[in-house]
Simulated scan of single mutants.
Amino acid sequence: MAVTLYRTPTTAADADEIADWLRDRIDESVAVRDRFLDEHRTDELPERFAEARVLSPFERETGNAMLGVVRYEERALDHPERAGGVLYDGAALQRALNPAIPDGERALDHLHVALLDRAVGTWGDHDGRWHKRVNVLGQPALVSIPGLYEAPAKPEAYYEAKRKTALLSGDAPPREVLENEVEGEFLVEGDPRTTEALKGYVLQTVHCWRTGEGFCDESGCRLSNPHRQPGVVAAQLRDPEFCERHAELYG
């Protein structure tokens, strides 16, 4: 059994450090490769990305395959630093990326985990809207770096301070300013704690692959899935790392 983790070139995530951490906790071999979208590029991917675009937060239907949008996705694949501001259906991206995996590596005993510089989401039947996600479990498993900052909700004071500063200066305030002005703990783009926080989200994809289980119900466990940023900080950056049950597996 094997796990392959893919780097993302445009973010603060260190795939090699995450892989070392995983090797200390699981028996399976862990390899690191360059960006998934470079390693397993196919001619169909730009159109498939265009088809996976979320058009509205409240519309289930996705996709805009107009020529200009497909051309944008081609440029984004070639120059990932230019991509951004788009939400993609995570399940649709999985369906698009799975056939790109080589035939010999698509068996159930080999998990591929792609660190992505794209925002991904899943549709909520319970409230009729899209929700950004940090990860999407499955094959390949997707771990969204923008999702780490954007999916779990920050304190309302954060959004208010960001709006106020943007109105005055025309730009978003630096992370250090927001952390000083806003009570509570949260992660923002480029946060130096990004790699540490992502370790648990990558392990969640491996845990699901190994056991068939989803997220842990115990808050504070690295395998839990908090919906607010303070919960993410508590689960991924504070001790203990795991609840009692999962500490037996990964502690």
Rank of each mutant, 00 (worst) to 15 (best):
R106S: 12
H126M: 08
E51S: 00
L178E: 01
E73R: 00
P230D: 12
V233Q: 03
S219T: 06
P174G: 11
L148Q: 02
P152K: 12
D34M: 02
F58K: 11
S56P: 10
A65N: 09
S56L: 04
T194L: 03
R175V: 05
Q139K: 09
H79A: 10
L93H: 00
E17M: 09
E47R: 00
W21L: 06
T122I: 12
T10E: 13
G200C: 01
E248M: 06
G85W: 06
G121I: 01
C216T: 05
A166W: 11
A12Q: 11
L67I: 09
P155A: 09
K162C: 07
T165V: 12
E28Y: 03
E248I: 02
Y88C: 00
V233W: 09
W123T: 00
L55R: 13
N98W: 04
A141Y: 08
G104T: 07
R41C: 06
V70N: 08
T62S: 04
Q204N: 07
L45I: 00
G63E: 01
R35D: 15
G190S: 01
C243T: 05
H112D: 11
F242Y: 15
L142E: 03
Q94S: 06
E213S: 15
S169C: 05
G90S: 15
A197E: 04
E185R: 14
G231A: 06
V70A: 01
V120E: 05
A235C: 09
G147V: 07
M66R: 14
H112S: 12
D117M: 07
R245K: 13
L97V: 00
A114R: 07
R95C: 01
D103N: 13
A157F: 05
D103A: 15
T10D: 12
V136W: 15
V113P: 02
G170I: 04
D43Q: 15
V32L: 02
C216Y: 07
R25T: 10
T42N: 02
A31P: 03
H112K: 09
E28Q: 15
G121F: 04
A234H: 11
A12H: 11
V233K: 10
D24C: 14
Q139W: 08
D117C: 05
G251W: 10
R95E: 04
Q236A: 15
T211W: 03
W123G: 11
L237D: 11
P192G: 05
I101A: 09
P99C: 02
G170S: 08
A151T: 03
A166E: 08
E39R: 14
L187I: 07
D191T: 08
L142S: 02
L5N: 07
L168R: 13
A172F: 12
V32M: 05
L137V: 09
L249T: 10
H227Q: 07
A141S: 12
V188T: 15
E74H: 10
D125A: 12
R222P: 04
D20F: 11
R23H: 05
G68W: 06
A247C: 06
S169Y: 14
E185W: 03
A65M: 02
R238P: 07
E61F: 08
A119E: 13
A157T: 04
T4V: 15
G170M: 05
A119R: 05
E218H: 14
L203F: 10
G184V: 03
